[in-house]
């Protein structure tokens, strides 16, 4: 499928600044930072989570562990998909029970991924609180879910696609809005 780029809404500098601002918010809100753990949702949530952990380390000299969550097995559209999604590993080598869990994803859209992630987390233990961090909130929620920390609100149409690219896997940091081109 061909996609046409409509706008480049964030570059590496903007992403960096936004993550620094969010880090300050996290530190302000979580008095007991030592009780905080970060869970990144595959794939790009992992890298955003790791960056946040590093920023907190720089600011407060506290190590925040980062776990990896794969939500494939908790999807609600399991039987509607054309083919099964490949299941990847969930790698959380610490207990989430009684922790303040910071769930991290790149884009918040319908909210269904977050619903799946919360169900999955609760099967792993009983967190004290769950907070949600997203780099982009593009609207169009289908479930009553709201992020605690948002990098940028981005009004979009449903047709549009938001691409978050991160250096760790995409070789550069940027956020693009694209649209599938109507021409075949």
């Amino acid at each position: 499928m061909n996609e046409k780029i409509k706008a480049r809404v964030m570059d590496s500098r903007k992403i960096k600044r936004v993550l620094e601002r969010i880090t300050t918010e996290i530190i302000e809100r979580n008095r007991d930072l030592k009780n905080l753990v970060i869970i990144g949702i595959r794939t790009r949530g992992i890298y955003i989570g790791k960056r946040i952990s590093k920023l907190i380390k720089n600011a407060e000299n506290i190590d925040i562990p980062v776990g990896v969550l794969d939500i494939t097995l908790y999807r609600d559209d399991f039987s509607e998909l054309e083919a099964q999604h490949m299941v990847k590993k969930t790698e959380i080598d610490f207990s989430v029970t009684d922790k303040d869990v910071l769930l991290v994803d790149d884009v918040l859209f319908t909210g269904r991924t977050i619903r799946a992630a919360m169900d999955s987390l609760i099967d792993l233990g009983r967190p004290k609180t769950i907070q949600l961090l997203v780099l982009i909130d593009r609207g169009h929620r289908e479930l009553p879910i709201k992020a605690d920390y948002v990098g940028k609100y981005l009004p979009t149409s449903r047709r549009e696609i938001v691409h978050v690219k991160l250096k760790e896997i995409d070789n550069k940091d940027e956020v693009l809005i694209t649209e599938p081109s109507s021409l075949e």
């Binding site: 097995l73 908790y74 399991f78 590993k89 099967d123 792993l124 233990g125």
Partner: peptide, 12 residues
Amino acid sequence: EISAREVKKVPT
């Protein structure tokens, strides 16, 4: 990893 969890179950 699922079989190593305390709750060895996913809803898939």
